[in-house]
Amino acid sequence: MGKTSSPPQPPAHSEEVKLSFPQEHVMLLTFNRPKSLNAITPTMTSDIKTILDWFDNEPSLWVLVVTGEGRTFCAGADLFAWNKRQATQGGDGDQADVLGLPDGFASLSRRFPTSKPVIAAVNGGAYGGGMELILNCDIVIASADAKLALPEVKRGVVAVQGGMPRLARIAGHQLASEMLLTGKAITAQDAATRFGFVNQVVPKEKVISTALAWAAEINSNSPDSVQSTKRALLLAGRLGVEETVIAHINSAESKRQFRSENIQEGLRAFTEKRQPVWKNPAKL
Rank of each mutant, 00 (worst) to 15 (best):
M1H: 15
T4K: 13
S5C: 06
P8F: 01
Q9T: 15
A12Q: 10
H13V: 02
K18S: 11
Q23T: 14
E24D: 15
E24S: 12
L29R: 08
F31P: 06
N32I: 07
R33M: 01
P34D: 07
K35G: 03
S36A: 15
S36C: 02
L37D: 15
P42C: 07
P42S: 08
T43D: 07
M44N: 00
I48W: 09
I48G: 06
I48L: 10
K49N: 14
K49C: 11
T50R: 12
F55D: 05
L64D: 05
V66S: 07
T67C: 11
T67K: 05
R71Y: 07
A77E: 12
L79C: 03
F80Y: 05
W82F: 14
W82C: 12
G90R: 00
G91M: 13
G91R: 11
L101R: 10
D103T: 10
F105G: 10
F105W: 05
S107G: 09
S107Y: 04
L108C: 05
L108M: 13
S109T: 04
R110G: 07
I119K: 03
I119C: 04
A120F: 02
A120V: 10
Y127F: 15
Y127W: 15
G129F: 01
G130V: 09
G130R: 00
I134Q: 04
I134T: 04
L135I: 14
C137H: 09
D138S: 09
I139Q: 13
I139A: 08
I141N: 06
I141S: 10
A142P: 12
S143V: 09
A146W: 03
L150I: 10
V153R: 12
K154G: 06
R155S: 10
V157L: 11
V157E: 12
V157R: 15
A159R: 00
V160Q: 04
Q161C: 11
G163K: 04
P165V: 09
P165T: 04
A168C: 14
R169I: 00
G172C: 01
Q174R: 14
A176Q: 02
M179N: 00
Q189R: 14
D190N: 13
D190H: 13
A192E: 14
R194C: 06
R194L: 14
F195D: 07
V198Y: 00
Q200L: 15
P203G: 07
E205G: 12
K206D: 14
K206W: 08
V207M: 06
V207Q: 03
I208M: 03
S209G: 00
S209T: 13
T210I: 03
T210N: 04
L212D: 01
A215G: 09
A216S: 11
S222P: 11
P223D: 03
P223Q: 06
V226F: 03
T229S: 15
K230M: 13
R231D: 01
L233P: 04
L234W: 07
L235N: 07
L235K: 08
R238C: 00
I246N: 14
A247W: 01
I249M: 12
A252T: 15
E253W: 00
S254V: 00
R259K: 13
E261W: 06
I263D: 00
Q264W: 11
E265Q: 12
E265H: 01
G266A: 03
G266K: 08
L267V: 11
R268C: 05
A269H: 05
A269Q: 04
F270M: 09
T271V: 15
E272K: 12
V277D: 05
W278S: 09
P281A: 01
L284M: 10
